[in-house]
Simulated scan of single mutants.
Amino acid sequence: MLDDTDRRILRQLQADPHASSAQIAERAGLAPATCWRRIEKLQEAGIIRGTRARIDWRALGYTVEVSLRVTLDKSVPRAFDEFAARARQIPEVLEIQTFLGQVDVRLGLIARDLAHYQQIYRERILHLPHVTDLDALMHIARIKYDESLPI
Rank of each mutant, 00 (worst) to 15 (best):
T98A: 15
E147P: 03
L94V: 03
L2T: 07
A141D: 11
V70C: 10
K41H: 04
A85D: 13
A31Y: 05
P150V: 07
A59W: 00
G29L: 12
A53P: 01
Q118Y: 12
I9C: 04
E123K: 12
G50P: 03
R38Q: 01
M138G: 05
L134R: 09
L100R: 02
L2F: 13
R7A: 03
E26Y: 12
E92Q: 09
D4E: 15
R27F: 02
S148T: 13
I39K: 10
A136R: 11
Q97P: 00
F80W: 02
G101L: 08
L2K: 10
V103H: 06
L128N: 07
R88T: 08
R54H: 12
I120N: 06
P32K: 14
Q43H: 00
H139S: 11
A115Q: 11
L68I: 15
T98R: 09
I55E: 04
I143D: 05
T63E: 12
G46W: 03
F99H: 11
A33W: 04
I90E: 02
L60P: 00
H130Q: 04
L149I: 07
R38C: 04
A141W: 09
T71G: 06
A19L: 07
V131C: 08
R58F: 07
T98D: 13
Q97A: 08
R88L: 10
Q89R: 15
I125C: 07
H18F: 02
H130K: 03
I48L: 10
H139K: 09
D6N: 02
L107H: 13
P150D: 14
A84T: 15
T34A: 14
I120M: 11
Q14S: 11
E92Y: 08
H130N: 00
I48N: 02
E26S: 14
E123A: 09
D16F: 05
E95N: 14
D113A: 09
E82K: 06
L109Q: 06
D3I: 13
A84C: 12
H130A: 00
